[in-house]
Design a protein around this nucleic acid. Sequence first.
DNA 1: GACTCGCTGTACCGATCGGTACAGTCTCCG
DNA 2: CGGAGACTGTACCGATCGGTACAGCGAGTC
Lengths: 186, 186
Amino acid sequence: MAKTVSERADLLPLLGEVFRSHGYEGATLALISKATGLGKGSLYHFFPDGKAQMAAEVLAEIDHWFEVNIFAVLRKSDDPALAIAEMIAGVDRYFRSGHRVCLVGVIALGASRDIFSSQVQDYFSRWNDALAQTLRRAGFSAGVARRRSADALLTIQGALVLARALDDAKVFGQAMADMKARLLAK
Amino acid sequence: MAKTVSERADLLPLLGEVFRSHGYEGATLALISKATGLGKGSLYHFFPDGKAQMAAEVLAEIDHWFEVNIFAVLRKSDDPALAIAEMIAGVDRYFRSGHRVCLVGVIALGASRDIFSSQVQDYFSRWNDALAQTLRRAGFSAGVARRRSADALLTIQGALVLARALDDAKVFGQAMADMKARLLAK
DNA sequence: GACTCGCTGTACCGATCGGTACAGTCTCCG
DNA sequence: CGGAGACTGTACCGATCGGTACAGCGAGTC
């Protein structure tokens, strides 16, 4: 039989797209197999615990991407305005200007939230903390910082939902621009 | 056999909750049967086209509720501030202060969007139009009205996602308060 | 070249999927 | 009181579900 070795690292993004577009329950092994080009044998070789493990590792990879590219920047930067601009640029890149959906959000809304609740909660609260910290450094009170931070996070999620519902990615771009202005206003 | 006649009207809300908490693909006939207390025979008697018809009718019922309780108020009221306050109160009631999720949003994010895209798009764009119309009447330009209107819609959706992700309904309440202030600001 | 072992596809498992068929039971109307 | 027809549960359908078992292959190692 063929031996076209697959790297686990190459697999996760493909799995991510399947979960993104079909949700956890909708992502069948058949779909995953087709998307990755791998039979069940290979899939279960890499992920002995099956679908749940695949989703967990995809979430972990996404978490890592945001940790490195977004959260860390927010925490380290001593220029809040720049850090926020970089966050928004990163988010826009990641979500392909509103054409891509947030897997963490998708899972949060679904029944599978219960299985992944700690990962989902952790992702958003670490983002929330990092952004609030940045806003505090910009001179806002703790209360204002946390409110604006939550507002930014929810704006991103909502913009993705609405852009997809209306099939109009411009909604996302506009929301990001509005949010940017709002975050550091007065 | 038993004959506990069910009203179609009593059925839809139950179906709605199943779709809400499991998504379209996750809502199996078995789950639906248990939630409604009806066997497949009865289910297919009421909805000959099966799951797709059930979901479509649930969406139609939701659409109708918002049409009557939200959109119509926005369109008819000659007091924009009052209309918006009523909209927010209605939304808060409907989504149980952030404890309940938006089925239209859930479907918009999932793979089933393709099946229901016109219903989903219609729901949001009629809401968007009605709210923008209200804002125009409050004296804002067409551009500002449409931007703020979309912002409000996406804030509601995002607040529901984030509240559920963080398992903290206070996020929703706060977001509604912020949004209210933002809609009619200066 | 034989052995090992990581990786592969495929045949197969029981369970469950959405959907159909149908006989039984009720209510209503004559 | 005797249909008629709306409504009901249940047995059953083929397809597909997530998952397992396993034999075959390929690249190293000696």
